[in-house]
Design a protein around this nucleic acid. Structure first.
Length: 112
DNA sequence: CTACTGACCGCGA
DNA sequence: GTCGCGGCCAGTA
């Protein structure tokens, strides 16, 4: 655990229910632009007891990052569907469930 | 030190 | 839709 991880977790925790955000977007919101891979690494280091909506983090193209059919893949798609997010063939339509500019501003208070 | 890997990203062809 | 390439950088061998 380090400061970068803490900020990454905070950004993930801010994703509202029924929405998803990309690794790159989380990295940017954590003050770490261009470091999407670090977000992936941080997610692999999440303490087991920690309450974190990790399943709301997907790739920039809408795909679930886990290999199709893997345990993580099933778990993630299950949780997303459980809160109303459409998962079709391992992919989420970002146009509908992604964070647009307005919601992004409302969440993280960027002036607009 | 080099080399390879990984829950990634964007651009160009 | 596909493939390739460079960027990013912490871990591991």
């Amino acid at each position: 655990m380090n400061d970068a991880h803490v900020r990454i977790f905070a950004a993930i925790a801010a994703i509202p229910r029924g929405r998803v955000a990309s690794y790159g977007a989380i990295a940017a919101r954590a003050g770490l632009p261009g470091r999407a891979r670090l977000v992936g690494r941080a997610l692999g280091e999440v303490p087991e007891g920690m309450e974190l909506p990790w399943f709301r983090v997907i790739r920039s193209n809408g795909q679930i990052a886990f290999p199709a059919g893997s345990r993580g893949f099933k778990e993630q798609s299950r949780r997303l569907k459980a809160e109303g997010v459409e998962v079709k063939n391992g992919r989420v339509p970002l146009a509908t469930f992604g964070l647009d500019a307005d919601l992004d501003r409302a969440l993280w208070g960027m002036p607009g």
